[in-house]
């Protein structure tokens, strides 16, 4: 285990960005992934540990015009009770209700779930469906600046993303979904609680007169990163949600992915689950 030489607990984004500008830092928020990874040797601490939990401006959900900001420090538990989430992004609450256990939901944050970049990160799947953008802050030249990265361009591999060493994820921005937007989240693991997904689906669109449009489909645990499925979206866009469309979409969903076989599930079973859950959500929203 590498040694932590400095511990910082900044109380503003500005201070945190300044600390990151010096390089070689590990950021800790809820710690529910980091502590385990550091403990098992999977991840080494950088010399500076920055605890961002005191940056209160990064916690909570806010609505500004047509844009919803979910602060990176918003906990998974917060998603279950937040009114903006309930009104505009209810699939985030559905996801939160299937996320790990109460203890982990209380500590774990939306930002941490994104930055951990797990292929099976539950929180990422509905965020992809909602076309969230990651908001990254840095302080390269003495002043704090931010950039936005659409979440479907954010992940580059298991545990990897485009986030730079000097950047801090301060939240995600989501455009308020259009009127008539309905969605769902499905996750399967053998246990109802404390479970890592064998496969997960986030699917939504505007359903009007039985026809679905503005379709967004995201999958978790079936590729090196959580993904959007353009093929499945295309198969649904503008279609009447009847049995034929739903079944065809399920078929395309399962054949459009190439999941791995590991100790948790086989490639075949993951595809099967994606098909079952895709069809299940489509039946629910139709």
């Amino acid at each position: 285990m590498s040694t932590i030489e400095n511990y910082l607990a900044p109380s503003s984004i500005d201070d945190a960005a300044a600390a990151l500008a010096a390089g070689s830092a590990t950021i800790v928020a809820g710690g529910t992934d980091l502590m385990l990874q550091a403990g098992s040797g999977q991840k080494e601490y950088a010399p500076t540990l920055i605890n961002i939990q005191k940056i209160t401006e990064m916690r909570g959900v806010s609505l500004d015009g047509d844009t919803i900001r979910i602060g990176a420090l918003t906990t998974i538990t917060d998603l279950l009770t937040d009114e903006i989430i309930a009104e505009h992004l209810p699939v985030m609450a559905t996801m939160a209700d299937k996320f790990a256990s109460d203890q982990i939901r209380n500590a774990g944050t939306v930002g941490g779930n994104i930055c951990n970049a797990s292929p099976a990160g539950d929180g990422i799947v509905p965020l992809l469906m909602y076309k969230a953008e990651a908001v990254l802050a840095s302080k390269p030249n003495g002043s704090t600046e931010t950039r936005k990265v659409p979440l479907d361009e954010f992940f580059t591999g298991p545990g990897k993303s485009v986030i730079q060493e000097n950047e801090l994820l301060i939240g995600v921005d989501i455009a308020v979904p259009p009127a008539g937007f309905v969605g769902g989240f499905g996750k399967f693991g053998p246990r109802p609680a404390l479970e890592i997904a064998m496969a997960a689906v986030g699917l939504g669109g505007v359903v009007k007169d039985g026809v679905i449009s503005d379709v967004r489909v995201a999958f978790g645990a079936v590729a090196p990163t959580p993904i959007r499925s353009a093929e499945t979206e295309a198969a649904l866009e503008g279609k009447k949600l009847d049995e034929t469309t739903i079944s065809a979409a399920g078929e395309i969903a399962s054949s459009s992915i190439s999941p791995i076989t590991d100790i948790r599930a086989s490639d075949w079973y993951r595809r099967h689950l994606i098909r079952v859950m895709t069809e299940e959500i489509l039946n629910d929203v139709s």
């Binding site: 053998p190 246990r191 109802p192 609680a193 404390l194 890592i196 100790i263 948790r264």
Partner: peptide
């Protein structure tokens, strides 16, 4: 009967943790 298995391949324990060694939890 339903969930627990210590997965051992060629002598190596593949799931030495509570995430992948599935003990029964209260809701089940």
């Amino acid at each position: 009967g339903l969930s627990e298995e210590l997965i051992i391949e060629e002598g190596i324990v593949k799931n030495p943790n509570f995430r992948d060694y599935k003990v029964v939890t209260a809701p089940e």
